[in-house]
Every structure is written in structure tokens, then in C-alpha cells.
Amino acid sequence: MIEIKGLHKYFGDLHVLKGIDLNVAKGEVLSVIGSSGSGKSTLLYCINGLEEIQKGAVIVDGVDVHAKGTDVNKLRQNLGMVFQQWNSFPHLTALENVALAPQIVKKHSKTDALEIAAKQLKHVGLGDKLNVYPNSLSGGQQQRLAIARALAMEPEYMLFDEATSALDPELVGEVLETMRMLAEEGMTMICVTHEMGFARDVSDRVAYFHQGIMEEIGPPEQIFGEAQSEHTRKFLANVR
């Protein structure tokens, strides 16, 4: 379980997250929506400790992410992350991209790591691209590569930061399909997204962020049908 308690985040004087309280249970799929600059990406970075926080706490399976003694490198193995810019490692083949972290972080033998990598690449539909370098993959394929790379660490949680926003429209579908597959397999997921169809169909709950505050959270039917907050309704009217 991910527990976020009274989380405040500043960049200098800029107050980006203003007291977030949020629990995400095992197996849950949460979509996070909201306009640009509302702090969605920052929230994800605070969850896996890529950003420091100024107040409050983030607790993953009982471990305080930002506490002094916490081994964040160990923690991050359990929190896979997929970025908007897919960030393939250009100097490594698809197989090496995925196998590297299992080998050097999880200390698997090279053979085991390669086996895990091949399995995960097949899982996301890249079984025929094992020895290809990222620059000859499409954006959608590179994003699926990034998903396989995160999955190879066998995380219990996956954080998606606008995984489809940088893709050409015709490539969005294949990545959403992969995310949908993960959700069906029972992965716990927090998905920052602009894909309202995905948020409505796949998630258990949807959270709307507005200027650093979690304005509203509830099941998709509530958010998309009878949103309580004026801001939420306005936002949704604009994106649709």
C-alpha cells in the first residue's frame, strides 16, 4: 500500500503540492488527471524519492520513503516508473536495456537477467526486437520497451507519467493496450494521464489535481458523471 500523508512540496518559493492525503491499495489502478503544472509529475517523483519533500510523508508498504535511513535504491526496485519521454538507453539493445538493472541492481547472473529481459519484452509484444537498438524502434515500441524495463525489476507498483503524451496519435493505442493488460493482471498502478477514455475504463478511482491540491477523488462514474467540484467539471468540459 502507498500512503501519502499531508505531503507538501516546494521548488524554492514555488508551492507545488499543498498537502496531499492519498492512499493507494494493492491491486488498485488510480488515474491522476489535471491541467499542466498542477503537480502530477511531481507527485510521482515524490513517491519514488526522485524528489525531496518538505513536509508530510510517503509510506510504501510501511517504509517511509523520505526517512534518513531508507535505502531508496532498494525501494525503487519495487516502484517501476515510466516517463513521458520514454528514455530508452540509446547505447544498449532492447534486450540489454531491460537486462541491465536486473543484472547490476538485483545481482542476477547475466544469463538469468537476459532470460528475464526476453520474457518481459515478449510480454509487451517486442519479442521480435530483442537485438535492435532503440533508435530503430518507433516511439510506441520504445515506450513499451520502457514498460518492459520497469517490469523486469518485478515491481509491485507501477507509476506512469503521461506515458502516451509524447507519442504520435496512431501509436497511443498500443501503449494504452499494454497498460490495460497490466491492470488486468492485477498490477497496482498510478497513471498520470490525459487519456480520459483510459481513466474512465481502466481505473478504479480517478483523482483530479488542481494547482497543487487534490481537488476531487472518486470512482470514474463520479468524476466523469457527477463531479462534485466546479473545477473538475470545468476541466473535463475543456478536455472533451
Binding site: N48, N73, L75, R76, F83, Q85, N87, V105
Partner: peptide, 25 residues
Amino acid sequence: PDTQLRAARSLGMTIPQAYIRIIIP
């Protein structure tokens, strides 16, 4: 791009690992 470092760190690599395996090559 510094997003390469972020991606490496998000996989649990330490800073030296990320530099040696991802950035420096």
C-alpha cells in the same frame, strides 16, 4: 539529457552505477 539519469535511478541504480553504465558510455 538528464532524464537518462532519472530513468536509471528509477530502476534502483546508484549514482555511480547510473554514470558508469548509462551516462558515461
